[in-house]
C-alpha cells in the first residue's frame, strides 16, 4: 500500500543535505510552510540555495532560516519589504547572495524545470538590467530573453488537504507557487492541514496530482482513514 504520509516533520526533511537547492512555497505568509521551515532549521542543513517569491517577512518562517545563517543564496522576485529586516541586514553585510528574477520569469523557470524544458524565451525583462548578458532572440518581431530552468532538490510547500497518494488541494491564495514548485523538485514535501481518505478529494478538483508529491505531513487536524473523524482543530 502506498502511503506518502509522514507523521514527523523532522523525518520529512531529514535528508536535506548541505548545499541543497530548496524551493519554499508561499507569497508573503500565504502558503508559507512555516512548520517545515522550522523543521529544516532544527535539522541544520547549511549553505542552502532557497527559491521563494520573497526573502522572508518579520522574524519567523523563511526569515528565521536566514537569521540562522543557513542560506548561501536566495533566488526571488521581491526581497525588499517593510518587514524584510533580516534579509536586508544580511544582504547589506554581503553575507547573502541574491539572484533577482521578475516574478513571471521565476514562475516560468520553475515550470520549465517541472515540465522538462531546456529553457524558455520570455519577453519579460528584455532591455532591462535583469536581462544583461543574457541571450536574446527576436521572434515574429518581438524580443525575448532566454531563461533557464530552476531545478530543486526539495520543494517545501503548504496545501490544505491531501490523501495518502499525495494528491493535493489548496486554500485560497495560499496556492500560489505550490503546484509549480511541486513539479520542479526531486522531492516535494507538502505540509497539509488535513489528510483525508483516498477517494474523498474530488478527482475533478485535485490541483496537484500525487505524482508530483513524495511526502505529506499533516500539521493540523488529521482525519484517520478509518473513522473519518476530525481529531484536532486546524493549526493556524
Amino acid at each position: 500500500m502506498i502511503d506518502k504520509v509522514v507523521h514527523s516533520l523532522a523525518m520529512a526533511v531529514d535528508d536535506v543535505r548541505d548545499g541543497a537547492t530548496v524551493m519554499i512555497g508561499g507569497f508573503g505568509g500565504a502558503g508559507m510552510p512555516s512548520e517545515l521551515i522550522d523543521a529544516l532549521i532544527a535539522q541544520g542543513a547549511r549553505d542552502l540555495t532557497i527559491v521563494n517569491n520573497n526573502a522572508g517577512n518579520g522574524e519567523a518562517g523563511l526569515a528565521a532560516l536566514l537569521k540562522a545563517r543557513r542560506v548561501k543564496k536566495i533566488i526571488c522576485s521581491f526581497p525588499r519589504q517593510t518587514d524584510s529586516q533580516v534579509f536586508d541586514g544580511l544582504y547589506r553585510a554581503g553575507e547573502l547572495e541574491l539572484e533577482l528574477v521578475p516574478q513571471g520569469n521565476l514562475a516560468a523557470r520553475i515550470q520549465a524545470a517541472g515540465s522538462g524544458l531546456g529553457a524558455v524565451y520570455t519577453p519579460t525583462g528584455f532591455g532591462t538590467l535583469l536581462a544583461e548578458g543574457k541571450e536574446t532572440r527576436r521572434i515574429d518581431g518581438r524580443d525575448y530573453v532566454l531563461e533557464f530552468p530552476i531545478h530543486a532538490d526539495f520543494a517545501l510547500i503548504k496545501a490544505h488537504r491531501a490523501d495518502r497518494w499525495g494528491n493535493l488541494v489548496y486554500r485560497k491564495t495560499a496556492r500560489n507557487f505550490g503546484p509549480i514548485m511541486a513539479a520542479a523538485a526531486r522531492c516535494t514535501v507538502a505540509q497539509v492541514d488535513e489528510v483525508v481518505p483516498l477517494g474523498e478529494l474530488d478527482p475533478e478538483a485535485i490541483v496537484t496530482p500525487g505524482i508530483f508529491v513524495q511526502r505529506v505531513v499533516p500539521i493540523g487536524g488529521q482525519r484517520s482513514p478509518r473513522n473519518g473523524a476530525a481529531t484536532q482543530g486546524h493549526a493556524r
Partner: peptide, 20 residues
C-alpha cells in the same frame, strides 16, 4: 529600482505586467 548603490532592488511582477 532607483539604481542607487545601497538600494535593495525588488521587481515582483512589474516587468511581466509591462510587457504583457
Amino acid at each position: 529600482h532607483t539604481g542607487g548603490a545601497d538600494a535593495i532592488p525588488a521587481v515582483g511582477g512589474a516587468m511581466d505586467l509591462a510587457v504583457g
